[in-house]
Amino acid sequence: MTEALRIVVVAPDLAIQDPEDDHAVSQAERSRSLRIGLLENGFNLIATLPADVFLTERLAQLQPDLIVVDAESEARDALEHVVLATRDARRPIVMFTNDQDTSHVPDAVAAGVTAYIVAGLSSQRIRPILDVAMARFQHEERLRRELAEAKTELHQRKVIDRAKGLLMQRQNLSEQAAYDKLRRAAMDKGLKVVEVAQRVLDVADLLG
Rank of each mutant, 00 (worst) to 15 (best):
R6V: 03
P12D: 02
P19G: 10
E20H: 02
D22P: 02
R30Y: 13
S31M: 05
R32H: 09
G37E: 02
E40H: 04
G42C: 12
Q61T: 15
Q63V: 11
Q63E: 13
P64E: 03
S73V: 12
E74Y: 15
A75T: 15
L79E: 01
R90G: 04
R91T: 07
I93K: 00
T97Q: 04
A110C: 05
A111E: 05
A115P: 03
I117P: 03
G120F: 05
L121H: 15
S122N: 13
I126V: 13
R127D: 13
I129V: 15
M134Q: 11
M134D: 06
A135V: 04
E140G: 07
L147V: 14
A150N: 03
K151R: 15
K158R: 14
I160C: 10
I160Q: 07
D161S: 13
R170H: 13
R170G: 09
L173A: 10
A177G: 09
A177M: 11
D180F: 12
R184W: 13
A185I: 09
K189G: 04
L191D: 09
V193W: 08
E195Q: 08
V196H: 01
Q198G: 02
V200T: 03
D202Q: 02
A204Q: 00
D205V: 03
L206D: 11
L206V: 13
